[in-house]
Design a protein around this nucleic acid. Structure first.
Lengths: 184, 184
DNA sequence: ACCTGAACACCGTTCAAGT
DNA sequence: ACCTGAACACCGTTCAAGT
């Protein structure tokens, strides 16, 4: 089970801890506050030790993107438009839960392999309805792109005023509904 | 006509020149290459003199956003869906002409006043068709958000491979058509 | 193997000084 | 009024050294 002893000093920080700390810092203080020194101090370690685990600051950011993408939740339904609607809401919920990370998600594309895995359960529903794979990917990606763009408009890099939420909720629903109807 | 002499030294750089230079640097070398020192040197001036014209680097970036937004072109048609399609294509064309500025456009929302002015000609077409203003704004914004999100997916911060263009063109058209059909 | 201190080459920005 | 040089408080990253 790979519990064999390994030579040398055991690590005091792990990749996963670093990512948790990174998200915490971003949520609390914003993207530009996530310096290597700041991230190190959040872990009780110097900035330089992070380079044992990540190639660069940008590698940390890319890992944060994949980490957050993996937290998107949705439930499959019998009809694919319903599944897609659930996916869009789950994706948006994750984005609004991390408003200061939205610009990061927008800038750093999700790893292609990870992206495929993420939407694989969606594609099953399309196949069952006789929609070919290429068209299904177009539809899913269109919804994803609309959702991200909409979240960008809402948060604009900083957490939005709470009282504006209903306006954006209504707008999002209208756009999503139109998109799904148009693709149906 | 305001040609009266003013006291003091005449400026050697003007706001407009700074913005042109900024876009040139971004297009050629990317967003993170646009440092105050680099921008100054592109204008034959030190970084510090830029602070006479802009409050901060971020103020320069915000001005670049407004500058680029103003270059979007589209032609009005009799039917609003056609006008909207023209707007979407014009917006997208601007974005793809400045791939390394797309992340900037995504991060810095267009000034609200400027945004209203930009889409004013679009709203006229809706009013003529009896669509109320609130709904018209929702539709236009939905198209804009989809277009920006799509461009982000295509360029991802760096200029995309040219041979992938047809794929993105087809996808964009499919999404835009679905959106317009859904809103019609 | 992992972590650290010192160092390098940068940043944005302020401020007093020049013309 | 506008531009500059020097300076401050930061960055990301490298490297030799410690344990």
């Amino acid at each position: 089970m790979d519990t064999a002893r390994r030579p040398g000093r055991p690590p005091t920080i792990h990749r996963h801890d670093v990512l948790i700390a990174a998200v915490t810092v971003i949520d609390a203080e914003g993207l530009e506050a996530l310096t290597m020194r700041r991230l190190g101090s959040a872990l009780g370690v110097t900035a330089m030790s992070l380079y044992r685990h990540f190639d660069s600051r940008d590698a940390v950011l890319a890992a944060v993107v994949d980490f957050l993408a993996a937290t998107v939740e949705f439930v499959p339904h019998k009809k694919w438009p319903e599944t897609l609607r659930s996916f869009a809401r789950g994706y948006r919920e994750m984005l609004l839960n991390h408003p200061r990370a939205v610009a990061l998600l927008a800038t750093h594309p999700i790893d292609q392999q990870r992206g495929r895995e993420l939407i694989a359960p969606l594609l099953d529903g399309f196949a069952a309805a006789g929609v070919d794979d290429e068209r299904a990917v177009t539809i899913v990606q269109s919804v994803a792109v609309f959702t991200l763009g909409h979240a960008l408009a809402q948060v604009g890099g900083e957490p939005p005023e709470p009282e504006t939420a209903p306006y954006y909720d209504t707008w999002f629903d209208a756009g999503l509904t139109a998109l799904l109807k148009g693709f149906a």
